[in-house]
């Protein structure tokens, strides 16, 4: 694939992810109706619980709990878990799998793979006579994979049921400064606008090409486009600042507009908190 096709495909994924998230967050389901502050607290609490668990069984129970919350939030389970399992496989299983071998994790070999004539000691590394997968190693791999799957599914559950600016605004419950929350919200909005501009640049380049571009010209083109984007972001900074001043901006950023928590929010919050406490104990 040429650098242009690579670029188009990469940008297409970024733009699609943003739109899918916005689309899903506006659907009607249990989690979509909850206040963003409850969901952000739930996410932080549960992700910490997932990272504290040291056994496989509690991770499986948490995975089932998140599955049921996803189902009652009416998210498309197939699409949701296709993405979660892919990320869990890549960042959990694939990265951790070599540690299942007894070169990394010592223990009882349950699946011998290679038998050498003798064991070796190479500097600080020990290569055993029989290289294979150990019970302890497999337990580490399963544990890490489940932890990644649970963390990713919790994040996606919140992301697909809440608009991104709402998630960021809800971070006020952690006393995050308004200025930084405003910066994140603005950045999020503009990366999609600029990503579309960059995608158009790639498409325009592709449509003008009659033969392949050599590496030097391609690098020159990319440098030129990046410099152009830099100018564009600086120009937009000036425009944004003027727009803020014209609306009466007085150097102090304050995010308003949180409504009071209703009875359903409190009930869900108490239920999720109790569930979290139970998971902490099992």
């Amino acid at each position: 694939m040429s650098f242009i096709d690579n670029g188009i495909s990469h940008l297409g994924k970024v733009i699609k992810t943003g739109y899918v998230q916005m689309e899903l967050a506006s659907e009607d389901g249990l989690f979509q109706r909850l206040d963003a502050r409850i969901k952000v607290l739930f996410l932080a609490f549960f992700i910490i619980i997932v990272s504290l668990k040291k056994e496989i069984l509690p991770e499986i129970v948490i995975a089932l709990f998140v599955f049921s919350l996803t189902a009652i939030s009416r998210l498309n389970l197939f699409n949701f878990y296709k993405k979660v399992i892919f990320l869990g496989f890549v960042f959990g299983f694939l990265i951790a799998f070599p540690s299942a071998f007894n070169i990394i994790t010592r223990g009882e070999v349950i699946l011998p793979v290679i038998h050498l004539s003798e064991s070796y000691n190479l500097w600080i590394y020990h290569v055993p006579q029989t290289i294979g997968i150990t019970r302890e190693g497999m337990s580490v791999v399963i544990m890490l994979t489940l932890r990644v799957v649970n963390s990713v599914s919790l994040s996606f559950l919140i992301l697909y049921t809440t608009s991104f600016p709402e998630i960021i605004r809800a971070l006020k419950v952690f006393r995050a400064p308004d200025a930084i929350l405003m910066v994140i919200t603005l950045t999020y909005k503009y990366i999609f606008i600029f990503a579309k501009t960059v995608e158009d640049m790639y498409l325009a380049k592709k449509s003008r090409m009659v033969s392949s571009v050599n590496g030097k010209d391609a690098r020159q083109w990319a440098s030129g486009r990046i410099t152009f984007m830099f100018r564009k972001t600086q120009q937009r900074c000036e425009e944004l600042f003027k727009a803020m001043l014209s609306r009466g901006f007085s150097d102090s950023v304050r995010l308003y507009g949180f409504k009071r928590l209703g009875a359903p929010d409190w009930s869900a919050g108490v239920f999720l908190f109790c569930a979290g406490i139970i998971f902490l104990w099992i």
């Binding site: 650098f3 690579n6 670029g7 990469h10 940008l11 970024v14 405003m182 910066v183 994140i184 603005l186 950045t187 503009y190 990366i191 600029f194 990503a195 960059v198 590496g215 391609a218 690098r219 990319a222 486009r225 990046i226 984007m229 830099f230 972001t233 600086q234 937009r236 900074c237 944004l240």
Partner: peptide
Amino acid sequence: AMAAAFSFLIQMFNIP
């Protein structure tokens, strides 16, 4: 915000 957007955009360019 614009510096962050630019920082994100740099990663969008695949370069030979």
